[in-house]
Structure formats: C-alpha cells, structure tokens
C-alpha cells in the first residue's frame, strides 16, 4: 500500500492528482467537521452577493452566506456520497462478478443478463427513477449511484476472473493441491486488485459528476444544505451579476473530477505490468 502510494507520487500525473485530492480531502473533512471560516448556513443580509475579498475569499451568495464555507461543506457532501456509493457498488459488483466467473452456468447467466438490463438504462435516468421512488436525500443518492455502477464493477471483475481461471499458474497451483479458497484470494485476488483499483478511481470521478447532476436537477442534496450541484443550479440566474457563484463550484467540481482521472491514469500505468516496463 505504501509502496503503491510512493509509485503514484513518482508518476507525473499521479503526483498532480494526489496533491489535488489531498487538498480536497482536507477541505471535505474540515467542511463536514464544521471547521469552516463561517457557518455555511449563516445569512448576512448586509453582505449579499459580494465579490471575493479578504473577509470572504470566494465571495458571498444571494443570502450573504460565505461561498468558501458552503463549498467546503459541499465538497464534504459530494465526497461522502461518492465514497459510499462507489464502496457499495465495488463490493457488490466484485462479489457478483467473482461468483459469476467461478460458478459459471446458470448463476453466471442470470447475473450477467440482469447487469445487461441495468446497463441498458441511461445512467442518470436510472438514478432519477430510484430517487423518485425513495424520495431525495443523501442515502437515496448513495443507493441510486451505487446501483448505476454495480454492472460496471461486475463486468470488470468477471472478465479477468474468467480468463485467470484457466491460466497456467492457476492450474499449476491446483496440481500442487492448493485449496480453492487460497487460489481465489491469493492468485485471483491479487491479479484482480489492479483492474479494481483503477475502476474505483474512475468510478469516483463519475460518482462526483452524477451526484452534482442529481443535485443540479433538485433531486440530490436538498437546500439549505450545500452541495456543488445545488451551488451551480443557484448560480444559473445570477451568473452575470455574480460570476464567482458559477466559477467557484464549477472549478472545484472540475478539479475534483480531474484529480480522480489523473489518479486513475497513474494507477493504470503503475499496475499494468506491460506499461510498467515501459516506464522503468
């Protein structure tokens, strides 16, 4: 794990991605811990729609709330939803993908056809449908985004697991009398960590975008709580008068997504034995 982190820090795009990610993570933790410069909900009617200044680095919004504080809380909210939804999706997807590959036959067919059904839905519409069923909220967003990305993890795990099952080193381990569970965890597991890690980073990027999109449509985080999507939606009618209300969440969302994409690229280079040789 520490070796992997070192490799990421040495990789050019990995270094940038990691730096941005750490900055955002700190902002998220501070934002959720309530350690923001101002109370994100505190309204200051006198200081409405003020541009960036020493008192308010990123200005204030229509109600005089501090944009930096709201941004920090929003990033925290986005991170919580993304991490939990990707966690659920990768766990569920891994179990489904691995068991589908291992047991094959009827179970494999049933799992993969159901995944085909989920994949045939446009991602945002599937999420919308789930949210309208359960009503908007943090945990509904987590559930909706998780369900959208389960099929992708299932496929990512099943493919390599299927091809690994018949590889020479697995056969060799079997002829040595190695137990099935040891083969599954030690030989298959380690070989599947690489694609899974890359997929998790990329899924985090998508989850951030989906969460922001849902909140933008008014079906994610509910006001007065802060979220990047809500801030962007609020900025729509004020963008000419108060452009910072648009720029701040837009750039923040872009950088957060960028950091995960950069990390994903770096991990793909590092974990792929073929490119690894090329890098060395």
């Amino acid at each position: 794990m520490t070796a992997l982190l070192k490799d990421v820090a040495r990789h050019p795009s990995g270094r940038i991605g990691l730096t941005i990610f750490i900055v955002f993570l700190i902002a998220a933790v501070l934002g959720k811990a309530g350690l923001t410069p101002y109370d994100p909900l505190m309204q200051d009617r006198v200081a409405r729609l003020q541009g960036p200044s020493n008192a308010h680095w990123f200005g204030t919004d229509l109600f005089g709330r501090d944009v930096l504080s709201r941004l920090m809380e929003g990033i925290g909210q986005s991170f919580i939803i993304s991490f939990f939804s990707v966690g659920v999706a990768s766990l569920l997807g891994s179990v489904l993908g691995l068991t589908a590959a291992w047991f094959s036959g009827l179970w494999d067919g049933a799992v993969m056809r159901f995944m085909d059904v989920l994949l045939a839905f446009p991602a945002i519409l599937l999420a919308l449908l789930i949210i309208t069923i359960f009503g908007p909220g943090t945990w509904t967003s987590v559930l909706a985004i998780a369900i959208v990305y389960v099929p992708i993890f299932t496929r990512v795990m099943r493919g390599p697991a299927l091809s690994l099952r018949h590889r020479d080193f697995v056969d060799a381990a079997r002829t040595f009398g190695t137990s099935r569970s040891y083969i599954m965890t030690r030989h298959l597991g380690l070989n599947l960590v690489a694609p899974l890690t890359v997929q998790i980073t990329l899924a985090l990027a998508w989850a951030l975008v989906t969460e922001a999109g849902l909140s933008f449509l008014g079906l994610g985080t509910q006001p007065p709580n802060a979220s990047l999507g809500l801030m962007l939606s609020d900025a729509r009618n004020l963008m000419e008068m108060a452009p910072w209300l648009l720029w701040v969440p837009a750039i923040a969302l872009m950088l957060a997504v960028l950091s995960f994409n950069l990390l994903g690229d770096a991990l793909r280079d590092i974990l792929d034995p073929k490119t690894r040789r090329r890098l060395a």
Binding site: A205, A212, G213, L232, M239, L253, M254, L258
Partner: peptide
C-alpha cells in the same frame, strides 16, 4: 483532453 474529460457536460454548458 484531460480537462475536457474532467469537466461534466452540464458545467461546460453553464460556462
């Protein structure tokens, strides 16, 4: 290209 891929399309639209 990296920036283009990292900017959600609705943000591109707003900008």
């Amino acid at each position: 290209a990296m920036f283009g891929q990292s900017t959600p399309s609705f943000v591109v639209g707003l900008l």
